[in-house]
Amino acid sequence: MARLIGGVGSSHVPAIGNAIEQGLISDPYWAPFFDGYKPVWNWMEEKKPDVAILVYNDHGLNFFLDTMPTFAIGAAAEYQNADEGWGLKPLDPFQGDPEFSWHIIDSLIHDEFDITMCQEMLVDHGFTVPMSLMWPKQEQRDQVKVIPLCVNVVQYPFPTARRCLKLGEAIGKAVASYDKDLDVVILGTGGLSHQLDGERAGHTNREFDTEFLEKLKDEPEWLLKYSNYELAEIVGPQGVEMIMWLIMRGALGDNIRELSRNYHIPISNTAAGVILFENEAV
């Protein structure tokens, strides 16, 4: 059976993609950020997962506002990255696992998550930056099949934090019921606090982010007491992306240990966080 061996929460700011491309991992601006990924790199190297389910949001590459699915999942053999219009160099295509995708879709729909299914899906920096962060080298990325799961955190109303946590639980069940010997990781991306638009652009909230990271393992429900509108005020409209981390957290169940955590302000306009959980049950 497939095993969900662990999960990572990570920011997905485009500037990170540029920094990796330009070899700035040890640069003084970037080192406090990238140092936080060393435990993740070591863990990935040791565990060598077969499949990554990557939870992210599209920023206007694949989806336009004409049709905005709340949750959409890829069911393709290959996912292309493409020009987003402002200069990030597209990465090579990513290999999918359509059979596993269809199993997850079937399981989710029968679990009452009516997810949008995509046989073609361009993946943008929200997807590619976490891939580069987890597996900086192309040959590493070539070893991992991917299943993109896209969440609407662009146009209100977004799914609630509670819905995200429950979707995660349903994904956990879907993985556990797949009859293939696969090691799977789930990545929840975006956040943490940041604000790109309005006079308050540049807003971050260390105190709230820190509490979020602190509670994510044992008390993920803590975030549910805030509506997405309240979160927009507290962590900035784009900081609300942290609800996607709850999908990762929900999938992992309660038998997990935290292996590492890092938090750093700023990366571009963003407070960047990373956390690594391992499933103790497998």
């Binding site: 209100y156 308050r200 005020e233």
Partner: peptide
Amino acid sequence: PIPGTMVFEG
């Protein structure tokens, strides 16, 4: 309204 903040709704 949230001061200095846009919320992109319908």
